[in-house]
Design a binder for these strands. Structure first.
Length: 585
RNA sequence: GCGCCCGUAGCUCAGCGGACAGAGCAGCCGCCUUCUAAGCGGCCGGCCGCAGGUUCGAUUCCUGCCGGGCGCGCCA
């Protein structure tokens, strides 16, 4: 029975599955004798109730059975009760509320979780069954610095990836670079204008329509020039090049400089990508051409006003989209379709995190994939809302039009990475985020990040002290995996009888479920809430239960084990959020 | 006008079909001669935007309205 610490032990999941099976049998039995004609039993759920008084697990089986049986729910529940038997050590069952069945397990049922929670792979599971998923996030235009919305996407997307990996998905983090097409040309021209101003003293030029007037472009022009010189193209030769060619070279070099900045800002933020996909590569490889040809072959395109259109309205878009302009060039959507086709070749699933200004994009991309016979549900979108920075109770203005938007680097100069990541991941992605710079910058108890980190630091200090006293680690615990459940426990009771111990253990035991659910729902923000609850349970335990001077050695050892379980769980939860778990504070 | 997202405690936000709606912060009252008080306990605080509908049950699903944000280019 004692398995060797396989990845993905989930005590709560296992118990729930067991109870589910037994309720299912009871439901079938009741149905067979009360309504033999009835074919399929209705779907019921077994859940951990929100309230402690409602037991360890509860089912709504009687509620959903009431209608097909034509009997009141509570009566059904009473009929169901005696039919539930065998298996899990139930201490007590009851019928409560409108007809819920509540299950109270033997107090020792969770003891094993304390041992499991100390294992290095605690929290990992196979919920994702190895499904491959490409997560694309940030993907900012390479025409200027990253902003705060990009930072939000970086934190949230990275946490999502960590959570998906832990829950058994095979994740690739990708960043798509729009380094071709119209946008790039406007950018290159803008850099060329600044170049001419700096190196040729021109004053008569202006940034083209749709170009980039921001002051940072001067700096890019200088850096591009230096980079080109380093590559063997000094300024003198640059100035002799034809205008278009010069703009192309400057633009290319400036774009690489921008990308270096992006990479650097992201690295500071502890976000690294597995792959930087380039629009220019897709075009050069002919992937855009191929995608275009397939779309034409699909029969969903037509020509009008000299352009080739895709009939996306046939797939739920609100207007058709141009694929090829009358000048023969592709619109941005063609290489983008090629990119998404490629992602769906490489993985079963693709998830795109989009900024608030790109949600108009979902319908057309789904439509294009549907036109090509792909199942559009394989592509998921998470669309964020705006970020408002608040200081002194006032919102900072960040509109590009006003030219005073805060860059991600500036933001990171001011805000601690842990605090920033926490705040970004703590909110669901699709709700607007008010980022209080004063609060995030505060190293005080008002800042929720420190509450969780403090719990971890407290534990580290406690265990350090125990180690100095020779009480930790306990004998035999070095080879933890084999020692699972090896600690002596009082016959018939739990090793953790104190209510504060039990509450902490319950919080610890939930962890793998929380990770799996956060992954399934693409909702890493659930984990910040969980981390807070776990820290809360630990702080309460710490106040309530003495650990080092717990009385008898068995009790002390049990509490140390529980403390270490909390430490590991806290550390792993924080790791999934990309937040550090300090040893001291 | 059409589309997407959001309206939940004073503030910032969770919860999104289940049993009396939660957290953090702010406010008020207690708790350190003992393992980190960046802590603990308690109190105050809510027509879950409004109106219908579906359901045994709706903050959660559907429809309509009201309020806010963002889109609606042969830019990306």
């Amino acid at each position: 029975m004692a398995r060797k610490a396989p990845a993905g032990r989930r005590p709560l999941f296992e118990a729930r599955r067991d109870i589910e099976a037994r309720v299912r049998e009871a439901v079938a039995a009741l149905l067979a004798e009360a309504a033999p004609a009835h074919e399929d039993p209705p779907a019921f759920t077994v859940e951990v109730p929100a309230r402690r008084e409602h037991g360890d697990f509860a089912t709504n089986a009687a509620l959903v059975l009431a209608r097909p049986l034509g009997r009141p729910p509570r009566e059904v529940a009473l009929a169901l009760l005696p039919k539930i038997r065998g298996g899990f050590p139930l201490a007590r069952t009851e019928v409560a509320g409108p007809g819920f069945l509540n299950f109270f397990l033997d107090p020792s049922w969770l003891d094993e979780a304390a041992d499991l929670a100390r294992l290095p792979d605690w929290g990992e599971s196979r919920a994702g069954a190895g499904e491959r998923v490409v997560v694309e996030f940030v993907s900012a235009n390479p025409t200027g610095p990253l902003n705060v919305v990009n930072a939000r996407a970086a934190a949230y997307g990275d946490a999502l990836c960590r959570v998906l990996s832990a829950a058994g998905w095979e994740v690739t983090r990708e960043y798509y670079v729009n380094d071709a097409g119209n946008q790039f040309e406007r950018f290159a021209e803008s850099v060329a204008v600044r170049w001419a101003e700096i190196y040729e003293g021109r004053r008569d030029l202006s940034i083209p329509q749709g170009g980039y007037p921001g002051a940072y472009v001067y700096d890019l022009a200088r850096r591009a020039t230096e980079a080109l010189a380093a590559e063997g193209l000094p300024a003198e030769r640059l100035s002799r090049l034809p205008e278009r060619e010069r703009a192309e070279k400057l633009g290319r070099a400036a774009l690489e400089a921008v990308l270096r900045d992006h990479r650097e800002a992201l690295r500071r933020f502890r976000v690294e990508f597995d792959r930087w996909a380039r629009e220019s590569d897709l075009r050069a490889e002919g992937a855009a051409e191929t995608a275009f040809r397939r779309l034409v072959e699909s029969g969903h395109t037509y020509e009008s006003e000299g352009a080739v259109w895709l009939r996306t309205t046939a797939f739920g878009d609100d207007r058709d989209r141009v694929l090829r302009r009358k000048d023969g060039t592709f619109t941005y959507i063609v290489p983008d379709i090629a990119y998404h086709l490629d992602k769906l070749e490489r993985a079963e699933r693709a998830i795109d995190l989009l900024g608030p200004d790109h949600h108009g994009y979902l319908a057309r991309l789904r439509a294009a994939l549907a036109a090509l016979g792909r199942d559009p549900s394989r592509l998921e979108f998470l669309v964020s809302q705006a970020v408002h920075l608040v200081r002194g109770g006032d919102r900072l203005k960040m509109s590009k039009r006003e030219g005073e938007f805060v860059t991600m680097s500036e933001f990171l100069d001011e805000v601690d990475v842990d605090a920033a990541r926490w705040f970004f991941v703590a909110r669901s992605f699709d709700s607007p985020l008010e980022f209080d710079l004063d609060l995030a910058g505060l190293e005080s108890d008002e800042n929720p990040v420190y509450y969780v980190q403090y719990a971890h630091a407290r534990i580290a200090s406690l265990l350090g002290r125990a180690e100095a006293e020779g009480a930790w680690p306990p004998p035999g615990s070095e080879e933890t995996p084999d020692a699972v459940g090896a600690t002596e426990r009082p016959a018939g009771g739990s090793r953790f009888p104190d209510p504060a111990e039990a509450a902490l253990l319950r919080a610890v035991a939930r962890f793998p479920e929380e990770v799996a659910i956060a992954a399934e729902e693409r909702a890493p923000h659930r984990l910040t809430a969980y981390a807070l609850e776990l820290a809360q349970a630990f702080h309460a335990f710490y106040t309530e239960c003495r650990v080092l001077d717990a009385g008898d050695p068995a009790r002390r050892t049990a509490r140390l084990l529980l403390t270490d379980a909390a430490r590991n769980t806290l550390a792993r939860a924080l790791a999934l959020l990309g937040v550090t778990a300090p040893e001291r504070m």
